[in-house]
Write a protein that binds this DNA or RNA. Structure first.
Lengths: 197, 197
DNA sequence: CGTTTGCTTGAATTCTGTCAAAGCAGGTGG
DNA sequence: CCACCTGCTTTGACAGAATTCAAGCAAACG
């Protein structure tokens, strides 16, 4: 049983170890408070109006965070695959209701880290605080670059660049999700694809 | 002299204290390694090709980070005013050359925190590590929201919303910078402004 | 003052969105 | 195991938002 639990959390522990050192005792302290959760395809982790009480770390599968506008269109703000953290950080940081939906794109297993547990664990284990600082700093760099791409590339260029960078991921998700993530309509994506074969 | 130095760093110390507690000794340790720098209007802190070896914290004035595309157009990626940190986090994290220019919009005084000093200070002072984790987390929330606005609002709406939220800031900077920050051309901004008086 | 820099205006153009209809596919129930 | 049904993708005609280009003007600066 202990072996099974270890395996569940192993991807996260490994991920942490890529950034900071961790004693076995710290490792155990962390694993003791974590929870895993399995989501079926299309199942929601959070819905608009709820508070994102936890960060989610994807062990296997794919999660997306999207917003539904007044016209009913879904706009995907973020994807997370294996070894990525995902959350509406506005909601998580302030512990206020989110306007997003967080949903499994495919059958997905995640680790959940509650807000208050994150705070107490970080105070307890300096390495973990450091880990999250580094992860956040890295995510911030990625966010800056994403904004840069949005502004400097046309929508068609954005698609071509994205599918060149993540050819397998593009296959993995429905086109309408990708289109909304890249900031345009599914129809337009379809036309881009039709053009150059 | 000690008094003068205290005053220079006071805004940052206060900012840190808004997030975490800090002993007087920790405070001194931090201030001992910080440097301030004064930039004239249009003076550059970093130029493309350089490594962003330090984070910058604005004490007074305004800094922008922009990229120059192949056609020579400047695209403003970020502004920072009083009490904001600014950096190309990609360059800073990896300590690799940046593609951005970081420039003073007006006469500006900043505090510089070197990458290696940040790392050693954070290891030394857990509260500081926590501060930066929280600041990064907050910045990430802001970045998510910015992407959301870019996707869900038209360019005209984006301008109207921004100038409603920051009416004084809009006055403070040239229009072409604002236009490029919001992701459109100066001509278009001019036309928006002409429409509804 | 003259020169540079930034702002305005208008016309033509391009890119992307909207709408509507039809095609396709994959899952579900019979 | 097949047929249906729902949801996703494709296609085409048209509309509109925003850009580009070019010229003129105003303001700031040395």
């Amino acid at each position: 049983m202990a072996f099974l639990i270890y395996n569940m959390y192993a991807p996260l522990i490994q991920h942490i170890r890529r950034f900071v050192p961790l004693t076995e005792q710290e490792e155990e302290t962390i694993m003791k408070v974590l929870k895993t959760k399995k989501l079926e395809k299309k199942e929601h982790l959070w819905q608009p109006g709820q508070i994102c009480t936890a960060l989610a770390f994807v062990i296997k599968g794919c999660i997306r965070m999207y917003i539904t506008d007044t016209a009913g269109n879904q706009q995907t703000q973020q994807f997370a695959i294996e070894n990525w953290w995902i959350a509406d950080y506005m909601s998580f940081n302030m512990q206020k209701p989110t306007s997003y939906s967080v949903q499994a794109v495919e059958e997905t297993t995640i680790i959940l880290l509650d807000h208050h547990l994150m705070e107490s664990l970080c105070s307890q284990i300096p390495s973990l605080e450091q880990y999250f600082r580094k992860v956040m700093q890295k995510a911030l760099g990625a966010a800056q670059q994403r904004i840069q791409y949005i502004y400097s590339l046309s929508k068609e260029e954005r698609y071509r660049q994205f599918s060149a960078l993540f050819p397998d991921f593009v296959q993995r998700i429905p086109q309408y999700m990708l289109a909304s993530y890249l900031g345009f309509t599914p129809e337009f994506l379809s036309k881009i694809r039709a053009k150059k074969v």
